[in-house]
Amino acid sequence: MTTQALPAAATAAEEQVRHYTFKKRRGPVIRGYIGLAIIVIWGLAPFYWMVVTAFRDVGFTFDTTPWPTHVTLDNFRTAFSTARGNHFGHALVNSVIIGVVTTAVAMLVGVFAAYALSRLNFPGKYFVLGIVLGASMFPGVALVSPLFQLFSSWGWLNGYNYQALIIPNISFALPLTVYTLTAFFGEMPWELEESARMDGCTPGQAFRKIMLPLAAPGLFTTAILAFISSWNEFLLSSQFSTSKTQPVTVAIAFFTGAQPHQEPYTTVMAAATIVTVPLIIMVLVFQRAIVSGLTAGGVKG
């Protein structure tokens, strides 16, 4: 492609460049494809094994045939069955509730801070950035003992006390939101805001009417990242959830089988598939946005 653009009287150096670009396109292409294949296998093979096992009859749990055999839907039925004290369906609903509320609160509060941090100059700005960054690196385990004591004295550790899960989740969802949104806002064409204000918009109007629609993709991506991080949380949920508010990660980790000490592998794989597939679909649909959000914020995975 570039060769056509070269002038007819190509210099020796340009010849050489052409020579090298030509050379680059042979052997390495095959090696490149092998590399790509390794990455695809890396990402998908364990996931594939999970799905294959989820559809495999429990009597053939350790069948090592690489393709689906003894296909059945029984595992999915068992996963949702409450006969053995598992409440997986209920846990799915809990995870959605906790994830949606956490994301909504983090977005509502974080969007203003991110706007100020990326756009305005104010005293203590780098201090605030430092706090947000420090919070995003904060070890969740340091929250457990003080919050455990507070929540138990408030009677939050039984019944339907979703706030006992949502409030700790804010501790990582809010920094993530502010951090990612600040990066997104930093790349937006803010000249438009200036011109809107020249035309007589108030700062609020300029933000609402001009910038918010432009920022929608960034906001959406950030919301997805916040939701995924809340959906995937385990440490805090395992300590603060009750049998009524248990999210899916906790439910899966403590799935009980037919007999004690017998791991219900296929059922767990079916449950894991159900938990993971919505995320995989999200990732497939929004992969471009998610990658840009991940790298923009440099958020933790």
Binding site: N232, F234, T249, V275, T276, L279, I280, V283, Q287, I290
Partner: peptide, 10 residues
């Protein structure tokens, strides 16, 4: 992105 998206518990 698949390994990244799967919850750590899973």
């Amino acid at each position: 992105l698949v390994p990244w998206a799967i919850p750590t518990a899973v």
